[in-house]
Nucleic acid binder design. Structure first.
Lengths: 217, 217, 217, 217
DNA sequence: CATTAAACGAGACGGTACGTCGCGTCTTAGC
DNA sequence: GCTAAGACGCGACGTACCGTCTCGTTTAATG
C-alpha cells in the first residue's frame, strides 16, 4: 500500500506546474473510471498506474503530470464518484444532513444503519478499504483522506449532537466530538478489522449503549 | 501479494508443504530480526523480501518457503517479538490481565492510557500500522492479525466487563462485547485515521462518556 | 490486462513487436561491447544477461526487448565486430576475395593458413566457440549463424573453385560445394573437437591431399 | 551449455573419494536412463541435475558424488548406451571394423553411409549434439569425449587406410590421419552446422572427391 | 548374525540468475 | 504544449537450479 512516492522530493527544479486550463477533461474522466473499475476487479495492490493508463487509453505521463501517486488518483476518483452520486441524487443541496425528528436515538440509528449499508456495499467496499489502508500508512494521504472524505461527514454528527445538547437530549458536559466517536468508531472498527459482522442490529446496540451508558442509573 | 500462479486452484497437486521438522531455527530468528529492523529503518513499503533475505543472510527461497507474503513475515515477527517480550517480562503467567480494584472507571482508564502509550510508541507504530493496513486490504491476513494479535487483548476486556456486570457496575442488559468496542474503538479510530490527537485525556473522556452515557440521567 | 504467458505459442496475439525506430543506438553499442568483453574475460557460460546489462549500464529489459537469448546477443555483437573491422580495414569493398594468382594450391594454402591463424586467435576463440556450440544445439540460432557468418565466407571458395574449374585446374565433374567442404571441414573438425593441433602444416597437407586425391595416379 | 563446473577447484580438502565397491548399480542405471530420456524430451540445456535425480528417483547427492557435471553424466550415459547396443548386436567382438573387400571406395562408402544414418537417427541426435557442443566449449569434457567416443572410431579408418596404402590403393606419401579427416570431417561439418542436408549421396560424393582429388589427372 | 559405516532418498539451505512487471523519466509524433 | 505511445534505467518480484549440508534409512561387508 502507498508504494514509493517521490524518492527525491528535494531535487524538484521548478515545480513543473502544468497549465491546468489546457487539461483534458476527457482523460480525467477516463482515468477515474479506469482506476475505480480496476480496483474493483483486481484489488488495490494489483492496480497499477500502467494498468490505469492502458485501460483509460491515456499516456502514463498524463497521470504522472496531474497526480503524485496511485493513491491520490484513487482518492480523487472516489471523491468524484461521491460528487456525481450526490448530484444524481439531490438536485439541490450537495450535502446531506442528519435528520432531526426530535428523537435522537431513532435519528442516530437511521443514519448509522445507512452507514452500515454503505460500508458493506460491494461497489464501494474495495476502493474505500484500499484508500483507508493507504491513508493509515501514508500520513500525507491520510490527512487528505480525512479532510476531504471523512471530516465532512463527521461534522454532520457534531451539528446534530450539538442540537441535541441544546434540546436537553445530551448531557451538557459531553464534548460532541467525543460523543460522535463513541458512535461511529465501533462501526469503523468492525468494518476495518472484520472482528465481528457489521449489522443493523449492531448499529442499534451501539446507539443504545452510547446513549444509555454502561453504568447502571 | 501471495498470488502464486495456477489460475485453476483446483489443480494444485499437493500444496508442496515443506518439512517443518527440518526447518532452520537460526534462519527464522534472523528473518524476524531483519524484517523488524528494516521496517523500523526504511518503512514498510520500502522493506522488500529481497532486503530481508539479504540482511538476514538467507536465501530468498527460505522466506518464500515458509511465508506467503511480506506481511505474513512481519506479522509473525511481531508476534514473536511480543512473546519474547512477555517471556522476558513476566516470569510466571504469559498473559496480562486488566486490574480489578473495584473501581471500573479507574481500571479502564489505567488500561486505556497504557494502550495510548503503546500506540504512540515510535518503535511499534510503523510495523503495527503497516500490519493493520495490510490486514484491512487482505482478508486472510486480517483474520490472522485479529485472531492472534487483537482478539486476545479484547478478551481481557470482556472478562473484566463481565466481572463488573456481576458486581453491579455495568447494567445487566449490556453485551460486554459491544461495551468493549465502545471503549476501544474510539482510540483505534483516532490512531488509525489521525483525525485528532490521541492522549490520556481522550482516553479518560471516552471512559467517562461510555460509562455515563450521552443521555442525561 | 497484460496477460503475456500462454504456454501455447499459437495463441500469441501480435508478438509484442517493439518500435525499432525509437531504439537507442547508444544502448545497442554498449550491449555489444559488454557482451564481447565479458565473454572474453569470464567465458561464455559465466557471461549472464544480468552481467551484460550491468556492465553496459542498461536495464535487463532492454536486452530482452531486442534479443531472444544470450547467444543471439553475442551473435549480433560478433557480426557487428566483423562489420566494424571490415569498415576500418577496407576503405572500398566490404568483402574480401580469395586471391587468384593462377596457382590454385598456393592460393588455397594462403587462405587456409589465414583461417588457421584466425581460429587460434585467443581474442576470437572463446566467443566463436561459444557461438558455434550454441548453434549446434539450437537450430534457429544455428541457421542464423550459418547464414550470416559462415555462408558468406564459404561462397568465396565456391567462386574461386568455379574459376579454377573454368581454368582447367579442377576436374569438370566436381561440385565446387563438395570440394570446398573437403578443404574447410578438416580444419573446422580439428578446431572444434581438438583431436590434433591445428597448424599451417596441416592446412598445407589438407590442400595437397584434396587436390591430389588419395588414390595413386 | 557446459554450465559451471566446480568454481573453487583448489579448496578440495581430501578428494573425498567415495567407495566405489558399495555403489548402487540400480541408481546408476536409473540415472543413465533419466539423463538420456530427459535430453531427448526437453533438450540438453533444460535437462537439470535436479530433474535427472527426480526422474531417476535418486537423491541429488548421489549424482554429485559420482559425476562432476551434467555433461559428464550424459557422456557416461551415452557411452553406456553404446556398450549396451554393441553387446546386444555383436555377441563376440565388442568393436567393429571397417570392411576390407579390396574395393576401397566401396568400403568407405558403406561405412560413411552408415555414419550418416547414425548421425540422423533421432534417438542419438539430441544427446550427441549436446555432448559435442559441451565438449567444444569445455576442453576437459571435450578431451574425454574425443578419447572415449570419437578416437576409437577414427582409429578404424587409420587401420583401413593403412591397409589400403599397403595394397597400393592409396598414394604412399599420404598421412592416413589426414586422409581420414578428409573423409570424415565433411560429414561432421554438415551434421554439426546444418549447412546442407546430410545424405548418402553426399557421402558418396565425398569419397569420390577425396580419392580422385580435385585436380585433373 | 548382529554391528556398523557407507551410500542412499529426501530435501532445506545460501546463493545466482532467470525472465517479468511496474516504477517514474524521457523522447517522439500528432493534434 | 498537452497528449498517446512507449523505450529507457532501475529495482523487486517469485521461480528454478546450483552445489552443499544435514537428516533418517537401507544395505552390504565385517567382527
Amino acid at each position: 500500500m502507498a508504494e514509493t512516492r517521490t524518492p527525491e522530493p528535494a531535487a524538484r527544479p521548478a515545480a513543473r506546474t502544468p497549465d491546468a486550463t489546457r487539461r483534458s477533461e476527457r482523460s480525467r474522466r477516463a482515468i477515474y473510471d479506469a482506476a475505480l473499475s480496476l480496483v474493483g476487479e483486481v484489488g488495490y495492490p494489483k492496480t497499477t498506474i500502467e494498468g490505469i493508463a492502458a485501460r483509460a487509453g491515456v499516456g502514463k505521463q498524463t497521470i504522472y503530470r496531474w497526480w503524485p501517486s496511485k493513491a491520490a488518483v484513487l482518492l480523487e476518483a472516489f471523491l468524484d464518484l461521491g460528487e456525481r452520486a450526490a448530484e444524481a441524487a439531490g438536485a439541490g443541496g450537495d450535502s446531506y444532513e442528519i435528520p432531526d425528528t426530535g428523537d435522537l436515538a431513532a435519528d442516530l440509528k437511521t443514519v448509522l444503519r445507512a452507514t452500515v449499508d454503505e460500508l458493506v456495499d460491494p461497489q464501494y467496499e474495495a476502493p474505500s478499504r484500499a484508500l483507508t489502508a493507504a491513508g493509515i500508512v501514508d500520513p500525507v494521504l491520510g490527512a487528505e483522506f480525512v479532510e476531504k472524505l471523512l471530516e465532512p461527514s463527521l461534522q454532520l454528527y457534531v451539528k446534530r449532537l450539538r442540537a441535541a445538547q441544546e434540546a436537553g437530549d445530551v448531557r451538557p458536559g459531553i464534548d460532541p466530538r467525543v460523543a460522535l466517536e463513541l458512535l461511529v468508531a465501533p462501526l469503523a472498527h468492525r468494518w476495518l478489522l472484520r472482528t465481528l459482522p457489521l449489522t443493523h442490529a449492531y448499529a442499534d446496540a451501539v446507539v443504545d449503549c452510547a446513549l444509555g451508558g454502561l453504568s447502571p442509573r
